[in-house]
Design a protein around this nucleic acid. Structure first.
Length: 804
DNA sequence: AATCCGGTTCTTTTT
DNA sequence: GAACCGGATT
């Protein structure tokens, strides 16, 4: 076919009109949006509008198809159309828009032909919602915007019979997985210190990430004792899961790949269906996910991967940065687009990030820039102790609050959770509202898992694993011994544990316990009956009541149980919310959803509070003011990561991620000594601080830093160090002196008594209602006019408070 | 079945 | 230092 003059005119008008639709994007972004056909790699720096591009690209594909990239006019096109488009471009009106759009569209995709794959539910949901907003709910509903896991589960539920699974397979989480493995290791009479469950689970998980079957793994292990034993465990584990018709998270991906590879007709079906495949956070994909994407996109090869090699921080979970680095080799005709304009941070912050990441050898290379202006310099603070560090942070936040910042404008990020302890107490002391994004997620909490286990068992009594979890929770006189005997009986009789339990009296081996067992079985039967005629949330309450779970928690009555009760109630609202949302709510539907769910989703919805979390969890988020704490050698980079360049680079990427979370102000803090693992450690400032550009860091800090560096040789000898510390630490010392003086003054000023009127920098005017001596300090209760009653420790509060 | 004691361990964790 | 686990004790 040859392009005619008509075609050329048409194509020019078409691109002008389409470009108009996406005029809010920058050139690079637009380029990515319009490159719809063929492989595309988008290297999207932090804060460069990656999600926007992903979404706009989908919108473009839905509305205009390959319109922009098409050089030919539609066969039905007439001179009239050309005229219309020209007029529309001159005077675009809302009435004409639809027709113009239709004339510009070439093979627009149907929603279900688009697969947009992400790692988190949150990201999937965001894409879904923004698309709903843009193209309407009905349209957006059919787009496959989902996580790797939910997309795979969806494929598996349809087709898993082809690989010998029942459609109703259950999903084992990390905890279930560990239980099974522990049992296997015990069963094999292996030393559980040599074969640590966590390590074994990790190795098996990595094997699955690499698509290694137990057989392949055994082959590779050869006669190496450790490896070949793990191969044995892996084999047993796989067999056991298969028998229970269960898959773990890694299976979900691996089995999908196996399904597609082993069944050409199924593969073809999906390859044909997915005309456009988009993958987010591509730098975090593992080998299995890479193969999966390649398979699914194998039909049209309209594959767009978006990611940032500099933000790859999940190697320890099997992610291989190779996938993104070698994309251009995999698809030789791939187009690569770099998004380097940053819309989030100030240039100072970006300079720091650029300088830092430049120290990495293994990267594609990118340089972030912004037209947001330079902003304020990065601030560095080194305190003597971890308490000092925490206090500095609290003071800084209080200062900021009194200047009009909101608590939620602050985030405190750390390398690992333990570092949050002191900061948490400093926040408590200073009445700073804070929220810790904890390592333990809602759905991992014991009480939540217990209740979910009940629901699973009610739905599917054959679920031995979960039955074992709750059969004696709360205690109902069914001891471990009894459960063990019953399990053995189940194995002997080739039946399920529940089957034995429900017919306990037929087995003399169970002796006196059989009454309790049958009682339990009847409980489950009763609940099953209730499920048939009750709304889900009401049913859940019945489960709480009849199992005695709620009563047991209430009976304990301590503070911890109170929290647990709240958590189980929270689960109830989850169920209620699901029941309302789903078209045909079922218990199974809810459990399925929950098993692929984490609770990061509700992170942002909550009240105004300082957020504390690990640097890992901060990925993808942004905050006006960010503290990076514990910037010390041995902590960040961690002592494990300094040996191998590869690990150090990942650590540096983590630092890059952390730095680029800040929009306006970045604070870097560290302490000279810190209590860790029960001993006091002296550490030098992190090398990552050195790698920040000097000119962009607050100047008095640089002095501090130089002094800190001078100390480095000394600190190998702690005695010498402590002797000299006072003489050489000029700036730090001065600062601490000042703080000390302030504290002295404030302790003197503690002649406070109830009834005194005070002015607080952040909370305003108030009256002291009580004073209680506490650990060399005084706990004040102050009733503030504006913010109500607060409890403050006098020493630190006096830095912000004056007596009238 | 609950509690206590001692020993052990201590990155990060999107599903 | 704290949290968690397993074994022993009550």
């Amino acid at each position: 076919m040859e392009q005619t003059r008509f075609d050329i005119q048409y194509a020019a008008l078409r691109s002008a009109i389409i470009e108009r639709e996406f005029e809010s994007l920058n050139d690079r972004q637009r380029e990515a949006v319009f490159h719809t056909e063929g492989p595309l790699l988008v290297l999207a720096g932090a804060g460069s509008g990656k999600t926007t591009v992903l979404i706009q690209r989908i919108i473009n594909i839905l509305r205009f198809g390959r319109g922009y990239s098409c050089e030919f006019a539609p066969e039905t096109a007439t001179e009239d159309d050309l005229f219309f488009l020209r007029e529309y471009l001159r005077h675009p009106t809302e009435q004409d828009r639809m027709r113009a759009e239709l004339l510009c569209a070439v093979q627009p995709a149907r929603p279900w032909q688009i697969l947009a794959i992400t790692f988190t539910n949150k990201a999937a949901k965001e894409i879904q919602q923004r698309l709903e907003h843009a193209v309407g709910e009905e349209f957006a509903r059919d787009i496959w915007a989902s996580t790797f896991h939910s997309a795979c589960v969806r494929i598996l539920r349809r087709n898993c019979e082809a690989i010998g699974y029942d459609r109703s397979f259950t999903i084992y989480d990390a905890d279930d997985q560990k239980r099974v493995l522990t049992a296997i290791i015990k069963n094999k009479k292996l030393d559980d210190r040599v074969f640590d469950v966590r390590a074994v689970a990790g190795i098996i998980g990595r094997a699955k990430d690499n698509l290694q079957t137990p057989r392949k793994f055994a082959l590779e292990a050869g006669d190496d004792y450790y490896q070949s034993t793990i191969a044995e465990i892996y084999k047993d584990y796989a067999r056991q899961l298969k028998e229970s018709n269960a898959m773990d998270f890694d299976d979900i991906i691996m089995k999908t790949v196996q399904l597609l590879q082993g069944n050409p007709e199924i593969l073809e079906h999906y390859q044909h269906q997915f005309r456009y495949v988009l993958a987010d956070e591509y730098q975090d994909t593992n080998h299995a996910q890479y193969v999966l994407i390649s398979l699914l996109a194998g039909g049209y090869e309209n594959i767009c991967v978006v990611g940032d090699d500099d933000q790859s921080i999940y190697k320890f979970r099997g992610a291989t940065i190779t996938n993104i680095l070698e994309f251009e080799q995999q698809y030789t005709h791939a187009k690569t687009i770099r998004l380097e304009q940053n819309y989030r941070s100030t240039q100072n912050i970006l300079n720091a990030a650029n300088e830092l990441i430049r120290n990495n050898a293994c990267r594609k290379g990118k340089e972030l820039w912004t037209d947001n202006g330079n902003g304020t310099k990065i601030r560095f603070h080194r305190s003597e102790t971890q308490e000092g560090e925490a206090e500095y942070i609290a003071e800084t936040i209080l200062d900021g609050f009194s200047e009009g910042n909101r608590w939620g404008d602050y985030a405190i990020l750390y390398r690992n959770h333990v570092l949050s302890n002191n900061i948490e107490s400093a926040c408590k002391r200073n009445s700073i509202p804070y929220r810790i994004v904890s390592g333990l997620r809602f759905f991992d909490r014991a009480e939540v898992k217990d209740m979910l286990a009940y629901l699973w068992v009610i739905l599917n009594p054959a679920d031995d694993l979960r039955l074992k979890r709750i059969i004696n929770v709360p205690a109902r006189k069914i001891g471990n011994k009894t459960v063990e005997t019953a399990s053995i009986l189940a194995e002997q009789h080739q039946t399920t544990l529940f089957d034995i339990v429900s017919h306990a009296s037929e087995y003399p081996e169970l002796g006196r316990a059989s009454a309790a067992l049958e009682k339990f079985a009847n409980l489950i039967f009763d609940l099953q009956k209730m499920l048939e005629y009750m709304p889900l949330d009401e049913f859940y309450e019945q489960v709480m009541a009849h199992t005695g779970y709620l009563a047991a928690l209430e009976a304990k009555g301590d503070y911890e149980s109170q929290g647990r009760i709240e958590n189980t109630m929270e689960l109830k609202s989850n169920i209620a919310e699901y029941a309302e949302r789903a078209q045909t709510p079922t218990l199974g539907g809810f459990l399925e959803e929950v098993s692929l769910f984490t609770d990061i989703d509700r992170m942002d919805a909550d009240a105004d509070a300082v957020v504390m979390m690990t640097m890992h969890s901060a990925k993808g988020l942004e905050f006006p003011n960010v503290f990076l704490v514990g910037m010390e050698e041995g902590i960040f980079p961690g002592f494990r990561a300094v040996e191998k360049d590869e690990d150090l680079e990942e650590e540096r990427r983590l630092c890059y991620v952390a730095v680029t979370r800040a929009k306006k102000q970045l604070y870097l803090t560290c302490a000279e000594r810190r209590m860790m693992y029960g001993r006091t450690q002296y550490s030098k400032p992190s090398r990552f601080l050195e790698e920040h550009p000097k000119d962009f860091v607050d100047s008095n800090i640089m002095e501090t830093k130089r002094e800190a560096l001078e100390k480095q040789d000394l600190q190998l000898n702690p005695k010498f160090y402590s002797k000299r510390a006072h003489d050489i630490s000029g700036n730090i010392h001065k600062h601490n002196k000042a703080t000390a003086a302030k504290n002295q003054a404030s302790i003197k000023a503690i002649d406070l008594k109830p009834g005194d009127q005070v002015d607080h920098k952040a909370f305003g005017h108030g009256m002291i209602t009580s004073c209680r001596p506490m650990g060399g300090d005084i706990l004040l209760e102050v009733s503030f006019d504006r913010v109500g009653t607060k409890r403050l420790m006098a020493k630190s509060a006096m830095n912000f408070m004056t007596k009238q």
